[in-house]
Amino acid sequence: MRHDIRVAGFGGQGMLLAGLLIGKAAALYDGKEAVLTQSYGPEARGGASNADVIIDDDPIDYPLITRPDYFVAMFQEAYERYRPVMVKDGILLIESDLVKPWPDEGPYRGIPATRVAEELGRRIVANVVMVGFFSGATGLISAHAGEQAIRNTLRPRLVDLNLKAFNAGYEYAKKQEAS
């Protein structure tokens, strides 16, 4: 079954890394097929930036996403831009401090990823907090695969911090479910 995931934020938030970790976790450690594509504006920082990941049990032909099944919004503009194209009954995850959903928004889940990251000492890992949250909330990638992806992607000195960030996001999702 094919799952189209869009992770959207602004340049500098590390959306590409978030997409890469999700795709890599699925493709290399969960035994699935995955494709990552990206798009970004001409500015290196601050412009809209999103990573599109497709996860499927079978080989993926068309690698682009037109209507995401899963939409992760890391700031308001990204939410407003892509929310309308999300499929009906799609799964929405938001950075709850930075995104104020429209009043008619249906069910969604949120995490103050930036604040959680700040509590870990580095706001820069908010993206990985969100990846952990994505894993915990959707189950589309396993926690083990997410951790493996982090270990085999980041430079060694950054691995511990990012594993903490992933786990913080993952646990947040699990606690949210429990409550």
Partner: peptide
């Protein structure tokens, strides 16, 4: 460009 900039196994 599509193939060059896509990531896959």
């Amino acid at each position: 460009e599509l193939i060059g900039h896509m990531t896959e196994r």
